[in-house]
């Protein structure tokens, strides 16, 4: 599903190249549950963002479902992105001005999904995450765990084939974190959704079936759990 070859990424600050990723090559297959681990500043988020097409690598090639992402034009890339990728953030990143319902609805609107289909999908998600009663509340009226559930529901709404999660439990208490991890595991096992998460916690990494260890922008270890 994902094929990375020799990915490099640097930021140039005042003409000085500051490398974040070096020679990253790996492949991830459909249905895998991968955890990316490593010290702070190692380049984990950068790698995830490149996978999620939010950032472009400086060098190297990236194939997503057989398409070379680096050569796609913006319209095609957004198309690919809308249809296949769901993002979950550490800081939830819900839109403050939208209700829970509208937050989940937004990606469906961008995908131009019809009204009735939209309604049934959202109803389904609200039901599944037990947040039906909260659907008309705004994000600032929810707890962190609830916000993250909404974040995941939003990522799932577009029925992506892969979920990219950047420290999804980083801001949560352990009980809530466990709930989220169980959810990911279930999605992975029962629906075959590919999951790539960045995490600092060994325990969370154990939910998956593969761990990539990154340090200084280089993959140091690739373990199967």
């Amino acid at each position: 599903m994902i094929e990375l070859k020799n990915i490099e990424k640097y930021y140039a600050t005042k003409g000085v190249k500051h490398y974040v990723l070096r020679h990253v090559s790996t492949s991830i297959k459909q249905g895998e549950f991968v955890s990316i681990m490593g010290p702070s500043g190692a380049g984990k988020s950068t790698l995830l963002n490149i996978l999620g097409m939010l950032e472009e690598p400086t060098y190297g090639s990236y194939e997503f479902m057989g398409e070379d992402v680096t050569t796609l034009n913006e319209r095609k890339r957004i198309e690919l992105y809308r249809n296949h990728i769901g993002f979950v953030f550490q800081a939830y990143h819900l839109i403050d001005e939208m209700t829970v319902y509208e937050n989940i609805e937004a990606p469906l609107l961008y995908k131009k999904i019809g009204g009735s289909e939209r309604k049934s999908r959202i109803a389904d998600l609200l039901d599944r995450f037990n947040i039906v009663a909260k659907k008309d509340l705004f994000p600032n009226q929810l707890s962190g765990g609830q916000q993250q559930l909404v974040g995941i529901a939003r990522a799932l709404a577009a029925q992506p084939s892969i979920i990219l999660a950047d420290e999804p439990t980083g801001n949560l208490q352990s009980a809530q974190a466990e709930e989220i991890m169980n959810l990911f595991q279930k999605l992975n096992k029962e629906e075959g959704i590919t999951i790539i998460q960045v995490t600092h916690s060994e325990k969370n990494a154990q939910y998956g079936n593969r761990i990539l260890h990154i340090a200084d922008g280089v993959i140091k270890e690739d373990l199967v759990v």
Binding site: L54, E74, R75, Y81, F87, H93, I95, A106, A158
Partner: peptide, 16 residues
Amino acid sequence: SKEVGIRKAIGSSRKS
């Protein structure tokens, strides 16, 4: 700006 970032991350094009 945050709204813009999120919208782009959930599939909005610049045009929209």
